[in-house]
Design a protein around this nucleic acid. Structure first.
Lengths: 221, 221
DNA sequence: CAAAAAATTATACGATCGTATAATATCTTG
DNA sequence: CAAGATATTATACGATCGTATAATTTTTTG
């Protein structure tokens, strides 16, 4: 029996303008498009979205392109993770940099942004959860995550250190304090996304301020 | 061309003793065995372990049994989640109940157990991460998780309330305080499992005590 | 001990999966 | 404008997936 031709699900890659049937793109551009398509697939279908065919279709391209540009699917996944992680931290720090340039103002902006729809979003968590699962089983991806997490905690540590310096708060180990605050943020994020009826984002903001009050009162001296 | 017979991968289900080729079990027993086999598969292979064939092989049984006892795979997954979640909370509370029966002793035991290998384990997180991913896309599983999380936070709240009553600590909203402490624990757990070099479990315990010190100093009044 | 009940196996079907290979189309360059 | 470089498509292969169905085996029961 003859094998049936596979359906590519191809829909896009419009040359738009010329009569060409597809457009050639710079490897960098195409890789970026594929990375972003991968993120959209993960948002839509979770782990099931991590698939050569689905991602290629989402990018409006045939499957072979992924092999061509990334060798294997896992490499595309790592690339997509780096896109997402860096964009997220970038977005967060942009908000901070546009805030009132006092230690208090910057930290407040960081907290508000953390509980805004930019991060406090089930779709966003969904993507992270998929990556966490992969990180636990892929050394390469684990390495990327370590870089990302280190950058995040360092940013938090800088914010807290500025506050502590400004207000002369005694803190024994600033790295640990930053770790604690990061963990609080992540934990609240996780809890809310898994079950948004548990508490309101404003209550999350309040709890962050309570944590900072503890810092001010010397709980971490 | 004739279709090739599928390999069942069957290895167990020994009748051991009689000459029977397989053993009939109570539906309850078999369901439990399949649930535990599912958890082992998830530990070993992450999301990829959630598969009828792999779970059946792990349980030493053929695939049809899963359809027979659960109808569809998703139902088995929900059952496995309930097994894991209830065993975890149960194990935690057993430790607490065997501790020095003062509010301080019980809370300390809870913290120590949270950072012991019972929970602070990459394999354990790996299972949770898989379930989180499924919870975000399965309403039925989401419902199970809400029950589980509610029970967990209530337990934390009871521990904190006993401490606050005993030491006459002012706490504005005990539910929110418990939510914060739970989030801290979860966040540290997540961070450490994804990258165990970030901090030492003892440092995590220290951070919990710092949080409680903040509570004592009135940060949540 | 025969017969009914139901737990379990056996098998099949159609989908989708990741990757490899060769053909083809587009774009750049001389 | 021809020709080379390579981005892209087209196609194939074998594996695994979830579920449905029917045959078989064990166990209970009358």
């Amino acid at each position: 029996m003859a094998r049936q031709r596979e359906d590519t699900g191809l829909t896009k890659n419009d040359p738009t303008k010329s009569r060409a049937r597809f457009r050639r793109e710079t490897p960098d551009d195409r890789r970026r498009q594929l990375g972003e398509a991968a993120l959209r697939c993960i948002v839509k279908h979770g782990n099931a979205g991590v698939s050569v065919r689905q991602i290629a279709a989402e990018a409006g391209v045939t499957q072979g392109l992924i092999t061509h540009h990334f060798g294997e699917l896992n490499e595309l996944v790592i690339y997509a993770f780096d896109i997402m992680a860096s964009e997220m931290l970038q977005g967060l720090m942009n908000v901070v940099d546009q805030a009132d340039p006092t230690p208090q103002g910057r930290l407040n902006a960081f907290i508000e942004a953390s509980f805004s729809s930019m991060l406090f979003d089930r779709d966003v968590l969904g993507v992270w959860v998929v990556f966490w699962g992969l990180i636990l089983h892929s050394p390469k991806l684990s390495f990327s995550q370590q870089r990302e997490f280190s950058g995040y905690v360092k940013a938090v540590e800088a914010l807290l250190k500025d506050l502590a310096d400004d207000e002369e708060i005694a803190v024994g180990d600033m790295r640990l304090a930053a770790l604690s605050f990061s963990a609080l943020l992540d934990g609240l994020w996780l809890a809310w996304c898994l079950n948004p009826t548990t508490f309101k984002p404003e209550e999350g903001v309040q709890l962050c301020h309570n944590w900072i009050k503890g810092l001010r009162l010397g709980a971490y001296a």
